[in-house]
């Protein structure tokens, strides 16, 4: 079981090693293999809970779609919005901390949503409550303090994709 859990970690380490070295010569492959075996053994009980998820191509397809959409559409929208606020002379802000519920099971999906929220300017996750499944989000322009409305404005798309990828 430990070996099965070690494989995805080793794969992650191997890919990182090869990409970072930027070459696929024999030396890099051999040392990368050794390093990834060691790292896999070290992190087997830390990183992964259910290894089979990593190997399904459908999840990877959704991850790719998520990344493309996130980097091209969502980020641009929010960046331009906040940049306008910064540069406009009156600095129109309307900030507050609102409750945003989420509905995913695994830690990874939750982290993906939280990081997506924090990485878009205008929203920062201040606190997370795993029991009640809510984020407390500091929002630069509070449209509504009602949780469901706030979720629609902040994290609905992220949650849709994260569910497909991680859950």
């Amino acid at each position: 079981m430990r070996a099965a859990r070690a494989i995805p970690v080793a794969l992650l380490a191997f890919v990182t090693y090869i990409v970072f070295s930027g070459s696929t010569s024999g030396y890099d492959l051999v040392t990368g293999l050794l390093v990834s075996v060691v790292v896999g053994a070290l992190f087997a009980n830390v990183t992964i809970e259910r290894p089979s998820k990593l190997l399904s191509p459908k999840r990877w397809y959704w991850a790719l779609r998520y990344a493309l959409r996130y980097f091209i559409v969502d980020e641009t929208k929010c960046h331009i919005d906040v940049a306008k606020r910064i540069l406009s002379p009156r600095m129109p802000v309307n900030p507050g901390i609102v409750v945003v519920p989420f509905d995913v099971e695994s830690d990874y999906a939750m982290t993906a949503i939280a990081n997506s929220i924090t990485n878009t300017p205008g929203t920062v996750v201040v606190e997370v409550d795993k029991k009640n499944k809510v984020f407390y989000v500091h929002w630069i322009d509070v449209a509504s303090i009602e949780p469901r409305e706030a979720k629609k404005g902040i994290s609905e798309t992220f949650e849709y994709y994260s569910k497909k990828v991680f859950d």
């Binding site: 900030p95 507050g96 901390i97 500091h138 509070v142």
Partner: peptide, 8 residues
């Protein structure tokens, strides 16, 4: 949270 609308 200084200019503030709501702090849940």
């Amino acid at each position: 949270v200084e200019p503030c609308v709501h702090d849940a």
